[in-house]
Design a protein around this nucleic acid. Sequence first.
DNA 1: AAGAATCCCAACCGCAAGTTG
DNA 2: GCAACTTGCGGTTGGGATTCT
Length: 354
Amino acid sequence: MGRSPCCDENGLKKGPWTSEEDQKLTDYIEKHGHGSWRALPKLAGTQRTPPRLALVRNVAHASDSSSVRYTGLNRCGKSCRLRWTNYLRPDIKRGKFTPEEEQTILQLHSVLGNKWSAIAKHLPGRTDNEIKNFWNTHLKKKLIQMGFDPMTHRPRTDFLAALPQLIALANLRQLVEQRPWDDQSASQLQADAVQAAKLEYLQCLLQSAAAIATSPSSSSINTSPTELEQIGLLSPSQMSSLSSLSSPRILEGVNGQDLVTWQVPDIQIPSSSFFEHEQPIINGTNQNSDYSANGGEGEKLLLLSEDSLPPLADFPISNLGDACSTSSCEAVGNSTQLPIWSDSFYDEFMSEFA
DNA sequence: AAGAATCCCAACCGCAAGTTG
DNA sequence: GCAACTTGCGGTTGGGATTCT
């Protein structure tokens, strides 16, 4: 496997492209296609070019109007290719990413990892470079800020470990600020927010456990119910209900797909407006998860499968960085929309602990 | 107003897979 | 089968633009 010569050789130009260079490259490719990128710079330079490029013509031939030659693109083919594919291509969509595009990137990244070119195929008009930049400058930071590992899209355990302190801070702030929180609705909102945050993280852990349990390569669940109790996510009574989490039952689903089941406590969702625009998380029905009464009072049987998880952390477990088979990539394109964490939830959740 | 810090993105680098003779 | 060459990809960086102090 040889490597193409570096642009430094032959004194080829590097750095930002001028408008003249852009024009040359565009004109050539529009007329002839790019063909061999390696040969393109030289060919583009020997073409008869439109009069508008007269500014860059070779002065040595300027006196002979019948054989005017123009200076070639003093760039390597690689540089030309990048300039064309990332900037000059006519079908490139410019401007800010829309929320829909942002969601799509998050979803695809959760499945494909840093396969920017594969992700770009699902975003017409966007280049892999653009998506990569957007990820590195916006989305990655956003996930990290919210306490999620940007590679696995799962809650970071270090963030989880700090949750009790964050919750305590949220409560402490109320006392310190001495704002008129004695207003009943305000304090109810505060309590609901904290409870909702707890539930949210509990759900994340359940899903992580589901993912791990259905993954043949995984060996253990990192966060046990005991740990949940220790960090204050569960009360002792909830602990007892959740004890079966340590050994989730794996059932065969209707389509041969494994389902993981636990006995989960009947945790009430806050009634305030805090999440009124969100779907119920654990208690109640959800279009992406299956619930069935389990006889026991206050308990329901929660059935989870990889594609029937509740919405907030519903990322396939196969996302481990670079793992991407052709079939899985294709499946993404044909799949129904994957539910993801909503921005509104992130914002409200994080602002609550800020 | 000015310097520092941070953000942003076009472009480069180097590796690996694919192609060709 | 092998080596040279080409292309595509992902990671990284340089420097201009913007925001902060």
